[in-house]
Amino acid sequence: MLVDDVVALVPSIPGRRVLLGLAGAPAAGKSTLARHLVTEVDARLGPGTAACVPMDGFHLSNAQLDRLGLRDRKGAPETFDVDGYVHLLRRLRAARERPVYAPDFDRSLDEPVAAGLVVPPEARLVVTEGNYLADDGEDWAEVRDLLDELWYVEAPRHLREQRLLHRHVIGGRSQEEAMAFIAASERPNALRAESGRAHCSRVVTLG
């Protein structure tokens, strides 16, 4: 059903492109769903039809977070380069004669990686996902206007926090450090993400 609806969004006119946004709390399953949708669209309509560009590539580097005193709030709205993300969305909506390169995020490094992703000119669908795509914050509200569709992805809190605990422990934190970070940062971030749910045209429940 979801895949059918996404395929229906893809423009049949060459040269046109649709942007689908997936918002939601940390570890709700946004990245997994985005990759699945891109894979299925490409399987039905041909390789290169769809591309995925996560918002996570616009995390500020750890060096910048340290400079700003925000390292312990990594993942909060103020720890992203929202202007850079908005600029990328504008580029994706503009003329498409050349590839568009976008930053990725390397969880093993816990750092963004410049030009880690590419959207080819022939891509007619771009799926982008992140916590704050539906956010009302002054710097974030412009994101919604640049998306053709915006869906909210949700999963039970206990499942999300299990995933976050695993993610942070794999990333090098002790279990105690990971649990403390989830309580101090991830839960407030989840509440902030949930505040934009009403701006989404569809709610997708995973888990």
Rank of each mutant, 00 (worst) to 15 (best):
A155W: 07
A198E: 15
R192L: 09
P11L: 10
R197V: 02
A50C: 04
K30C: 03
V3E: 14
E154M: 05
S31A: 10
M179F: 04
P99K: 14
L146N: 07
A28D: 09
A8H: 12
K30I: 06
Y132L: 04
V53Y: 12
V100C: 06
V169D: 01
P112K: 14
D66W: 03
G130D: 06
L191E: 15
V127N: 05
G75H: 03
R163E: 00
I13E: 15
L9Q: 10
T128C: 08
L146P: 00
V113Y: 14
S31E: 10
A190D: 06
L147I: 06
V118A: 13
A114E: 15
D81I: 11
F58Q: 05
R144G: 00
A63D: 14
E194P: 01
Y85C: 06
G48D: 02
P120T: 15
L70R: 12
P121L: 13
T32K: 11
P112L: 10
V113H: 12
A102M: 13
R202G: 00
E154L: 02
G57C: 09
V7S: 07
A50L: 06
V143F: 05
R93N: 02
P26S: 04
P103M: 14
L117P: 00
A34Y: 14
A27D: 06
P156G: 03
D139M: 10
E111A: 02
R173W: 02
E194V: 05
P54Q: 13
R124Q: 11
A23R: 08
R91H: 07
L45N: 06
E78W: 07
H199D: 02
A193S: 13
F181C: 00
A193D: 12
A8G: 11
R167E: 00
A198F: 11
V18Q: 08
A183V: 05
G46N: 05
G207M: 13
G172N: 03
V82M: 14
Y152R: 12
A95M: 10
A114T: 14
L60K: 14
R93I: 03
E186M: 02
H199T: 06
V203I: 15
A190I: 04
R90D: 13
G130S: 05
D145N: 15
L68S: 04
L9V: 06
R93K: 15
V153M: 07
